[in-house]
Design a protein around this nucleic acid. Structure first.
Lengths: 195, 195
DNA sequence: GAATTGACCGAAATAACAATTTGGTCAGTC
DNA sequence: GACTGACCAAATTGTTATTTCGGTCAATTC
């Protein structure tokens, strides 16, 4: 016999919390709300999670896992490193804009600066950098790119990509996906030194 | 005869305002305060400047002019483009951290997010990008670097430099001046493609 | 009569206080 | 012993009173 309960309350709570966080954000999600949505007494939540912060953390790691899986699925080992990188970054950005939770957290940080929401996005960024770093390291080991500090390189790559693709539309016109790829390739692979 | 008044009230106001803005920030600087410091009636300020915003703008352009002059003085036409660029960026960052007004505005934005202070810093960043862009353009014309969109390149260069030198100390250890120069040269001049 | 001033005004910020909400607990129920 | 929801202190929000500040302009000075 499986030791599964007649109703899996932990899952109920988790799903209700996910829905609430992505609909209302961190701050506006109340534990009463989650309990109601999960059809569970408030106390029950605290038998699974120590506090609101931990519950939120659980949702976040779920999202990050989901994002990593998606990224893994888009990587094609046949293709060159930069092409994979650009595709992954592109999808991640799309994801970040489209995924309800990430979008809501961004908005919450902009609008009211909830510290926990900020922290969540930092965690997300860290995960992205770590993911890129892994691929940079592998590409360097394969000799596809020159040796370099993977973490630092990944971080600067992400910043470059963001600068090119989305950031500060005040400072330059928005670029198309192809243009971003071109510039990224020029800057990062070939360098500006005249051939 | 010069048409200089016995006392140059405009200069008095400008100097008092500069001192006040860099000591107290934008928001905490009051027009009464400036008038007192300048030893001038409040109404007098309004004979020279339409409003507080314009007075602030005048101070800002003064600072930007001063910064550009400093940058021009550090550029050595004998040296390669990247070396000049790094030295200029380094000095500008130093300047931004040390110049009382810029530092105060950064703090004000962090602490209370005064919109006018934010706008002032954006203006400053725009000026920096424009300055770099000019040098990128010239370097490209000299054939020292390959042709590229000067504005966009300047913008991404600034972002790279900031990512390497100061930003988010959470995500990677702070780098020394030499390390920053090395990485910048690797990323921007040589590229990551294996030789 | 041109330049200068500072008392004055309304709008906006801030402080002070009251009312409500919320994360978390735990005695009691099933 | 899994589960609940009334309960509590602390934090947040709503409200009102008070102060501050950018800007004006009639009065004053030179």
């Amino acid at each position: 016999m499986l030791d599964r309960k007649p109703v899996d309350r932990r899952r109920q709570v988790l799903e209700a919390a996910a829905r609430s966080f992505e609909t209302f954000g961190y701050k506006a999600t109340t534990m009463d709300q989650v309990a109601k949505l999960a059809g569970v007494g408030k106390g029950t939540i605290y038998t699974f999670f120590d506090n609101k912060e931990e519950l939120f953390g659980e949702i976040m790691s779920g999202m990050i896992r989901q994002l990593r899986d998606m990224a893994d699925r888009t990587v094609n080992p046949e293709l060159p490193f930069v092409d994979n990188l650009m595709e992954v970054l592109h999808r991640i950005l799309d994801y970040r804009e489209q995924h309800a939770l990430a979008a809501k957290l961004s908005q919450e940080v902009r609008d009211i600066g909830t510290p926990m929401a900020k922290e969540g996005l930092v965690t997300l960024e860290r995960a992205v950098v770590a993911y890129i770093a892994r691929h940079v390291k592998e590409a360097a080991e394969r000799g596809e790119i020159r040796p370099c500090d993977p973490e630092l390189t990944a971080y600067v790559m992400l910043k470059t990509y963001l600068a090119l693709s989305s950031e500060s539309p005040h400072l330059h016109r928005p670029l198309g996906k192809e243009e971003v790829l071109d510039y990224f390739r020029t800057y990062w692979l070939e360098g500006l030194a005249p051939r």
